[in-house]
């Protein structure tokens, strides 16, 4: 299984996947620097951390999931290497599990990079701005906890997007579903039933109501693992002709 995982990770070399993975932290950093340097920084470090996490949860996380899962799947769809990969004497579930782990690993790295970029942007912004002050101290544990729980709550969205990207050769299906999901999430942020909407689960981690936050983490995490598991079984068993 380790060999299959390394093989799947090797496929990312020099690919667009890595370029897209670098985009969210760069954007968060650039935006953060501009906001802080222009004197519009949140008054406290906690608020700055929460603001960065909110941008991530609302827009960048779902967009990154769309882009990364689609591009990872296109590594096989594009040159049509499925026939080769799936005809190897390797259990298919291992191949799909490795692909899922690579996608999840990449999303975890991007999440951490965004958290780091959010903090770093404030530091740079403070240096560049005149008389800009952010009160209090940066709490790294808060940042790690927020981004970590958002990753867990986002597992269901990741599983849905990954399954669609693997199944369909065209970008159209996963991208349409992803854009639609993100739009509904933005439009229905505070809706009561939004708690059950996969694209809102990472956002709900920021809810002041602990019950709503816990529920989002539990449903997103458990739901994501279930969907990943079922998708791996289904993709492994279906005909690839």
């Amino acid at each position: 299984m380790i060999n299959v995982l390394i093989a799947e990770a090797t496929k990312l070399r020099r690919s667009l996947v890595l370029l897209v993975a670098a985009t969210p932290p760069v954007m968060v950093f650039a935006l953060g620097v501009l906001i802080v340097a222009s004197g519009n920084a949140p008054p406290e470090w906690t608020m700055h951390t929460m603001a960065g996490a909110a941008i991530w949860a609302f827009f960048l996380l779902p967009m990154s999931v769309i882009g990364l899962t689609a591009l990872i799947a296109q590594l096989e769809h594009g040159p049509d290497t499925w026939s080769h990969t799936l005809a190897l004497p390797v259990p298919r579930w291992q191949i799909f599990l490795a692909k899922a782990l690579v996608a999840l690993g990449l999303m975890a790295v991007v999440s951490l990079a965004v958290a780091f970029a959010s903090w770093a942007s404030a530091l740079v912004g403070l240096q560049l701005g005149d008389d800009v002050v952010i009160a209090g101290r940066f709490d790294p544990m808060l940042a790690l906890r927020l981004y970590g729980w958002m990753f867990v709550a986002g597992l269901l969205v990741m599983a849905i997007q990954w399954t669609l990207a693997m199944r369909f050769r065209s970008f159209a299906a996963p991208v349409s579903v992803g854009i639609g999901g993100t739009f509904v999430a933005v439009a229905a942020t505070s809706a009561e039933k939004g708690l059950y909407f996969p694209w809102l689960m990472p956002v709900n981690v920021l809810a002041s109501d602990d019950g709503r936050s816990d529920m989002a983490i539990m449903m997103g995490g458990i739901g994501g693992l279930i969907v990943f598991g079922l998708a791996i079984i289904w993709l492994s068993r279906r005909d690839w002709g």
Partner: peptide, 28 residues
């Protein structure tokens, strides 16, 4: 069994050697 099915489907972002290495690792 070794096979080349239809077009020679290789990963264009990898070198030839890396393409073989991906398969080699999967086959152990």
């Amino acid at each position: 069994v070794g096979a080349v099915i239809e077009t020679p489907a290789l990963f264009p972002n990898l070198t030839g050697r890396e393409n073989l290495d991906v398969t080699r690792r999967m086959l152990g």
